[in-house]
């Protein structure tokens, strides 16, 4: 019984939140890794693209809510999501047209694209602030829980409750579907293979008749979609605050690098690894220890690190992986 209680506490406070967070990180890292693999630079504006996309989704959600449109038990933001993705894609394609294409045409060294992405980051950051402000926004509506603590306790008769928030379940379902779709696209479709070919060898892709600009456009659209989905899921799960999206850049980069930059599978593995470590290391294990080993009295919370240091966790994982496996868990494009 105690073991079951411990398991429930573990699921409730560690496993489920970490899985949801990991899915969000993985989606973000997928965008970063695709841009790195195919456009060949780390996009510092990715966090702000997430924020911008989410801001658009929120605006559309508000509009829908004002019109009285809802999605039953699901959050209205889900209907707004495709519109948000379309608008963000347009924005990102516009950015490419105005900023990045110039350097691509010159075959400039990728570092200048990194610098340009810093400029884009400033602009996007400002635009997001302009559009929606800097305050914390909750835009989650619909049913809040799939399983509540009370229902769970009543159902199982355990002392500990398990809550499954609908946003968490939604995050996992959507993220899973998106990942499947992405892998199907990359490995099974002609366009997806062309994208991988372009990533492998730009010139040869061109000599095979693949239109590079088309590949680039597709990458941007996919990256914008991934960023908007990741941002919206993160915002539904936690709340929307523009600055948080800037801060999430570090764990996202860490996830992408830990997995192996340029490797989509790696990005997903990295996302979950970073998320689970972050949650596990900053969680006070006292309660679980109380069930598993009631005789042990640690005299503390059994929390390895305060939650304030969660960024340190992703950083340490990053360093460890880089020291022992410089190409990341899955062999990426960087060596």
């Amino acid at each position: 019984m105690d073991i079951l209680n411990a398991l429930v506490v573990f699921l409730n406070f560690v496993f489920i939140p970490a899985a949801a967070y990991g899915a969000q990180l993985a989606l973000g890292a997928l965008g970063v890794t695709l841009i790195y693999g195919i456009l060949r630079f780390s996009n510092f504006a990715h966090g702000d693209t997430m924020a911008f996309g989410t801001a658009l989704v929120i605006l559309v959600t508000w509009g829908l809510q004002a019109l009285g449109v809802g999605f039953g038990p699901l959050p209205t933001a889900l209907i707004a999501l495709p519109i948000g993705i379309a608008l963000t894609s347009l924005m990102v394609l516009g950015t490419d047209r105005v900023v990045y294409r110039f350097y691509r045409r010159q075959k400039a060294a990728p570092i200048i694209l990194v610098m340009a992405s810093v400029g884009v980051m400033f602009v996007m950051n400002g635009l997001t602030r302009l559009v929606i402000g800097v305050d914390e926004i909750r835009f989650d509506d619909g049913e809040r829980f799939i399983v509540t603590v009370r229902d769970f306790k009543a159902m199982t008769g355990l002392d500990e409750g398990l809550a499954l928030r609908s946003t968490q379940a939604l995050t996992l379902v959507v993220a899973f579907a998106v990942m499947i779709a992405l892998f199907w696209f990359l490995n099974r479709t002609k366009s997806g293979k062309a994208m991988r070919a372009y990533s492998d060898n730009e010139d040869l892709a061109l000599l095979s008749g693949i239109d590079p600009e088309r590949v680039v456009r597709q990458v941007w659209i996919i990256a914008a979609a991934l960023a908007t989905i990741a941002g919206t899921l993160y915002g539904l799960d936690k709340s929307f605050k523009a600055f948080n999206y800037f801060q999430i850049l570090l764990p996202i980069f860490a996830a992408a690098i830990v997995g192996g930059l340029g490797s989509p599978l790696g990005a997903i593995a990295g996302g979950f690894l970073v998320a689970f470590s972050e949650v596990a290391i900053t969680y006070p294990w006292l309660k679980i220890a109380g069930y598993v080993a009631p005789w042990y009295e640690p005299g503390g919370l059994m929390q390895l690190l305060g939650t304030e240091y969660k960024f340190a966790v992703s950083f340490v994982i990053l360093i460890v992986v880089l020291l022992f496996r410089p190409t990341g868990l899955f062999r990426g494009k960087s060596v």
Partner: peptide, 29 residues
């Protein structure tokens, strides 16, 4: 040879920001 290297060789060693593998030389635009 082609391409404008405004920053010289700066930054192109940092694998966490740039990926120079498979880079092309032909202007696809």
């Amino acid at each position: 040879m082609s391409g404008q290297n405004s920053f010289g060789n700066r930054g192109n060693r940092d694998a966490s920001v740039v990926n120079t593998r498979g880079m092309g030389t032909i202007d696809g635009t």
